[in-house]
Amino acid sequence: MIDGTKVIDFHGHVGRWDKYGMIDDPALFLHAMDAVGIDVACLFNIFHPDGATANDLAARFIAQHPDRFVGFAYVSPLMPERMLPELARAIDELKFVAIKLYPPYTPWPLNQAPWHPIYQFAHERGQTIIFHTGPEPQSLPKFVGEIAPHYPQANFVIGHSGNTPDERTQAIAAAQANPNVYLETCSTFRTPGVIEQLVNEAGADRVLYGSDMPLMDPRSQIGKIITATISDEAKRQILGSNACRLLGL
């Protein structure tokens, strides 16, 4: 909790990526989370296209501290026949609470047909999907703006808010045009004024704190929110109340 607000980190990974110092040790996670008052971290594993391997690894990690971690289901259109059964298993049996998609690991831009069964699933289930977005041709945020109107019962979170300036403009436009589009804040590009831009142009009720833990420490990434020139109420919305509403936590 920070000043009475439950804090949710909307973007975290399970799985090691040793060359970049990404170590999924729950003790490291909890040490960093406790140091800044993060109550719950949303976690997913994106390294296995079958989905099941990734989700089982995430579930085992989360089970060590089920009061502090929640899972997001991962699937990939690289193995299309596995997508919908695995989504159903992850959500119904593993009790994961949202879906994570990572277009750069596929050849398909996220507005193309191979992804649509996932969007339809989310629409029918009232689920939230967080995408990696950025300047990669598969990951442009404008595509989220294209798909969101067609699946109004789903919510779409633009991970990294596009990451770079042109893509951030696309992300904000997608949120402005669609009530079911949200913007998530983690980025290695900690450009001054970005949090203020997201709040001023999309609204504080549409922005979600995320860290990309453990690739990036949640303490530096939450520092972007705390030290931004925005109202305390906006900080509360970004740090937790928006995520709690979206995920039903």
Binding site: R190, T191, P192, R219, S220, K224, I226, T227, A228
Partner: peptide, 10 residues
């Protein structure tokens, strides 16, 4: 290039 207070907070 980066926001001033972030790493200081960390």
């Amino acid at each position: 290039r980066y926001a001033m207070g972030t790493m200081l907070f960390y």
